[in-house]
Design a protein around this nucleic acid. Structure first.
Lengths: 210, 210
DNA sequence: CACCGATGTGTACGGTTGTACACTTCTTTT
DNA sequence: AAAAGAAGTGTACAACCGTACACATCGGTG
């Protein structure tokens, strides 16, 4: 067997994605990841500087939101829903987003990563696009983007994490149709309610440990 | 110091709620919970049969959804949103729902508990109520209830777990107004898309470990 | 007062975790 | 071919986990 650092690193990374996606940051163990990759556990420390570094490397998200958003407004819900379902229904389920979603509750690193993604990679392109098309203000667009992000996150959590209820039982086509409709409802430009920034600071929750 | 089993049990339970809410099921440790309660760790085993039993006892949800749902349809979004914000904005943040939400990603027990709650305690009263008021079918009502549940779950995750973006920065009043509007949009009875149950079974994800 | 069960503690065990250290083995370069 | 360094392994350690067991201690009851 040829020695190939890059290939080994990649193999570890692939297994890490699978394990993190299935078990979350805390639930996954470097020993099992290494075993799956057919490698000694400490290679993870060598290549990624430890478990946290491995998680950071494994959660590099590859997703083109801007490309999905652009197009006619009347079918925007369809496009977003189709992309969401396509993404999450992928067979391998080693998705960085699933990892982050699973781990966000118990790990600061994961929560920050998912928050950044939702804000800058997912919501930003949408709220940049909306004002030009529906004539709403940027602040209103932000509120609508937050709504779309919220329902996607909730639906995805229900179907792929909790895995109960009609959302989990439905076919992917039904979910796509349903989600498209919900998103289009939230995007309706009439009577948009914006999310004014807080004047005072709200009572802060302590940060999550871990 | 008086010996009082019931009081000790309650003290443990209170500390458990705080710890589970802050760290999730995996992140919390019986040792630290016991230490916070000023008690030996194994009393947890004695009183609750172990860590899982303690979690089960700590996540007894007290919430009257039916009472919130009943009332005029035109302000249903307001009522639900107000209840959600009131509940989650509570200062102590030792909420069972928060515990379950944090732990659902990494623990089967927590995922099942949250799924059951969402389905039977939260969605059911709403989808029971809708047909009588909007004339939609029970199946359509289910789909709408799933949508409302999803956006609440996503919004709550964004504001209280991820804690980034406009949803986290906004005042509680603004969040309540915004959420009420989004829910009312999703509840609009025109052109409801239902969630048909799957004909074939979809590619199953493996259950979460833990 | 004497007793005895309820209440709580101390200690310890087996298991798992992440990772540091010293070592071998292969590949490449000189 | 020989040296050198990269690539990977084996072992071990300290910390922590949940919990089982044997023991101490208190409070109500005979």
């Amino acid at each position: 067997m040829n020695r190939d650092a890059a290939a080994t690193r990649q193999r570890i990374l692939n297994e890490a994605k699978a394990h993190f996606a299935r078990h979350g940051f805390d639930g996954a163990t470097v020993r099992k990841i290494a075993a799956s990759a057919g490698v000694a556990p400490n290679l993870i420390t060598r290549y990624f500087g430890g478990k946290a570094g491995l998680f950071r490397a494994a959660t590099a998200v590859d997703l083109d939101v801007a490309g999905v958003v652009s197009g006619p407004f009347s079918s925007l819900g369809d496009r977003i829903a189709a992309k969401v379902v396509e993404r999450w229904e992928a067979a391998d389920s080693e998705d960085p987003l699933l990892m982050m979603l699973r781990s966000a509750g118990t790990s600061d690193v994961a929560a920050a990563a998912l928050g950044d993604f939702m804000l800058q990679r997912a919501a930003a392109p949408l709220s940049d696009y909306l004002p030009a098309v529906t004539g709403c203000t940027p602040v209103e667009a932000q509120a609508q983007a937050a709504a779309v992000g919220s329902i996607i996150m909730g639906a995805v959590t229900t179907r792929y994490v909790l895995r109960t209820g009609p959302l989990a039982a439905a076919s992917r086509a039904a979910v796509a149709r349903w989600l498209a409709d919900q998103i289009q409802r939230l995007l309706d430009p009439s009577g948009v309610v914006s999310l004014a920034a807080a004047e005072g600071s709200r009572a802060d929750l302590p940060p999550v440990g871990g």
